[in-house]
Design a protein around this nucleic acid. Sequence first.
DNA 1: CCTGAACCCTCTAGCAACTAGAGGTTCAAG
DNA 2: CTTGAACCTCTAGTTGCTAGAGGGTTCAGG
Lengths: 149, 149
Amino acid sequence: MTTAQTFSIGALAARSGCKVPTIRYYEGIGLLPESPRTEGGHRQYGDEAVKRLVFVRRSRELGFTLQEVQSLLELSSDRARACAEVDAIASHHLSEVEHKIQSLTAMRDALSDLIEQCQRTTILECRVIDALSPVVATSEPSVRDAPLR
Amino acid sequence: MTTAQTFSIGALAARSGCKVPTIRYYEGIGLLPESPRTEGGHRQYGDEAVKRLVFVRRSRELGFTLQEVQSLLELSSDRARACAEVDAIASHHLSEVEHKIQSLTAMRDALSDLIEQCQRTTILECRVIDALSPVVATSEPSVRDAPLR
DNA sequence: CCTGAACCCTCTAGCAACTAGAGGTTCAAG
DNA sequence: CTTGAACCTCTAGTTGCTAGAGGGTTCAGG
């Protein structure tokens, strides 16, 4: 007899690997459906909730935004549908991740260069501070044109 | 005669590469000192402000938090001080950056594996959805123990 | 001197994705 | 029945800005 078991939000948290407040938060923003309640108002869950929540957690671990997770969840429920949209979301996300890796790598290289050069003496000679400190034209607004943004 | 020139927040933005609201925000949180004002209440800046702001912008580009930037600014003003603290901040930040790179790289690898495996058919066979969807024990709370947090 | 455009002002609210806390209620074991 | 753990809601905080409303100032041209 595998009767449909229900369990509390704490148990769901333990089974899914999410924290209790996070689950409530997800429900609040509509990522999880509102659960049935006990008479006293406590949330009750079943195995479906665990599945959905683990799906969310894994997606989050891969760096998908909650918006993307929402879309993935919707798409995943329609099993006959073409998975091109899933692919599009994943590919787009992949390129964002790659972009982040690139800028972090650039940061890392710049930082380690700086740190290496620093001879651990005084601020006066610190390469780190040096590199951050700009040399400003003594008075006239000559740099006015630079369209930095 | 290089008289001390003053200029508006817009000009400071142009010279520093920061946006106007960002400058006001920095002032609001105490990262920049309150500037003098014109009679009408407009902020007035000089070259010092440009230096400080470019320092901030460069630090931000290297990924330092505003807290860290604050500390770096304070340290940098004391030119006789040992730069060990600067080094500590930078090194700590470097290790955080490296850590982020690692987790993003792991994400990237997992994602590109998934996407590669997906044969662009239907959701039913989509590897991406597969990988995200958990296989849950049919009823009993057997996984209860996992102390994930 | 006056007008009008371009700039400036403050204040509030919003984003992502939670986390923390206050203050109160329910559940389940003993 | 009592107790303490777990649950409830609600608000506010985090980071680093950005956007908007609703207004005031500045300054060059006429």
